[in-house]
Design a protein around this nucleic acid. Structure first.
Lengths: 237, 237
DNA sequence: GTCTATAGTCGGATAGAC
DNA sequence: GTCTATCCGACTATAGAC
């Protein structure tokens, strides 16, 4: 899932022979650029961000961006690939769990899996220092899509699809429009704490969303989802 | 609620005497600038937006921004005031309804009012051509607050406070942390359709979110909220 | 691979004519 | 109130030294 993040002309020579373990300077620079670009693009957007700021924040030379990625927009695309790769890695365990629950096709198993998945989702998008930057980048792509959007959407769509199967199984319903809508409302209950975080902190009197706060959020969301699956989405309603 | 949007030196003279009804050219220009700035700031952010683009889109001269507002950042603040004023106007009827329901202090009335309020909220943030621009601007402020954030927060915080009282009344609970959290999860169920709209359209196979789609969203959200109030937030759970 | 220097463009703000 | 012309700083991208 982690696609190529750079395509520089492959260097075959080391400029000098060092005594100690040789490491790939280019990879180091690309990594630093990706991290800095993730932050700056997330805050300023593709247009608003400047390559100077990214290079400065990465601690590398301005020209390295063109050398390693080809230009500003290519770096932006590389960031999208990087995010999808990272989230995929983090979500791998739960995604597997979802697939299993679907295979089992037991409503009870699906319901349990859904609670687990949403809990993990809370941790991934709220409990990770990186996640704040990911969210900014992703939300920006949603509201102002660039060419990087298709990379993001491919991944997000897959996750939504898996969750839809899970909810459909839990409700013993087909994967119809209503189920897909309900999945979005479940995601939204978590997303709001990321997207409106400034407002949340102010209204809750929290200084940050840490482990304690995440636990509270998880409990409320979990109760809500159980209530929804029990009452709102039940067949023959 | 609609604060001063501009403070130019008051002109006392008309440059020419027209035969027909005299209109305020300055006010016209300010209005066009506010509308254009709302769009451009929402898409590009305070830093990313350029005054040249705003002026061009408004069809006015570049220097008019400095003349009427004082500069780029002051125009940005004026846009925030404008948004808050417009949303306040649109939500006035429901806000009054919320206050009434609270006075009644009847859980049943509060529940009904909450459903109404959320339905209106769907219409306001999803059913208005202006709302797409408002949302972009507001979400951007949430994720990357500028000085305009405090204007936005004052209004949003008030709305959240009213909804909290309503939910507390419906649940016969105090306005504690859990109730406030649950209000956020309810808001999130609607917000997701705005914030992740690109993904929603793709997954639902919709071309746009029009009246038909809003009705479906309202039904699902309403059912969810009823389920939550019935099961998840009930006292003595 | 990384650097400096620079070409060419575009940014916000201003001065002053009308 | 609106306009043109302009200052000056910052931008992306490139060329070429090391």
């Amino acid at each position: 899932m982690s696609a190529a993040e750079a395509v520089p002309a492959k260097p075959k020579t080391r400029s000098r022979h060092y005594r100690r373990a040789q490491y790939d300077r280019g990879a180091e620079t690309r990594g630093r650029l990706i991290e800095a670009a993730l932050d700056v693009f997330g805050r300023l957007g593709l247009e608003g961000a400047t390559t100077r700021q990214i290079a400065k924040q990465a601690g590398v030379n301005l020209a390295a961006i063109v050398y390693h990625f080809g230009g500003k927009e290519a770096l932006h695309l590389a960031v999208a690939e990087h995010i999808v790769g990272r989230i995929s890695t983090l979500l791998q365990p739960v995604l597997a769990e979802m697939a299993d629950a679907r295979a089992a096709a037991s409503p009870a198993a699906a319901r349990t899996a859904l609670t687990h998945v949403l809990g993990h989702y809370v941790d991934v998008i709220l409990g990770n220092a990186e996640a704040e930057r990911w969210s900014r980048f992703i939300v920006r792509e949603q509201m102002q899509p660039t060419r990087a959007f298709e990379t993001i959407e491919r991944f997000m769509g897959g996750a939504h699809g898996l969750a839809t199967r899970l909810v459909a199984t839990a409700l013993k319903r087909p994967e119809d429009e209503e189920v897909r809508l309900r999945v979005f409302t479940m995601i939204g209950q978590i997303l709001v704490f990321r997207v409106a975080q400034a407002l949340v902190l102010g209204r809750m009197g929290w200084k940050a969303i840490g482990a304690v706060e995440r636990t509270k959020i998880k409990r409320v969301v979990s109760e809500n989802v159980v209530a929804i699956l029990t009452l709102a989405g039940a067949p023959g309603r």
